[in-house]
Amino acid sequence: MTTRTDRFAPGDRVRTRSADPAGHTRLPGYARGAVGVVVEPAGAHPLADDRARGVVGPARAVYHVRFAATDLFGAGDHTVTVELWEDYLSPVEEQP
């Protein structure tokens, strides 16, 4: 699998994975299945979920993704920026 660190660009809207994995992951539960905006890329590293099982895969792109608190908790006027592997993210198609 090749890694493209330009898969997402700053400003892109992304949706996080909603799956509830059985093992170690670095997608916090509160940020699952949520839509946020890419702030900037943050390098590339093997996926933590794999490393926790002793498997070191290829480097995968990591992004800072900003969420509105209302989209995470239904309340709050702040934002939360989470650092997420591309494996946790899928693009959100903009409305035409």
Partner: peptide, 29 residues
């Protein structure tokens, strides 16, 4: 979830118009 409330416990009272940005160190940075 409630950064304004937590900051208040630390004695930090911010104006309502100041946007609060929380950064969760969930990966390598």
């Amino acid at each position: 979830r409630d950064p304004r409330g937590v900051l208040r416990e630390f004695g930090v009272e911010l104006p309502a118009e100041t946007q609060i940005s929380v950064w969760d160190a969930s990966a390598e940075s």
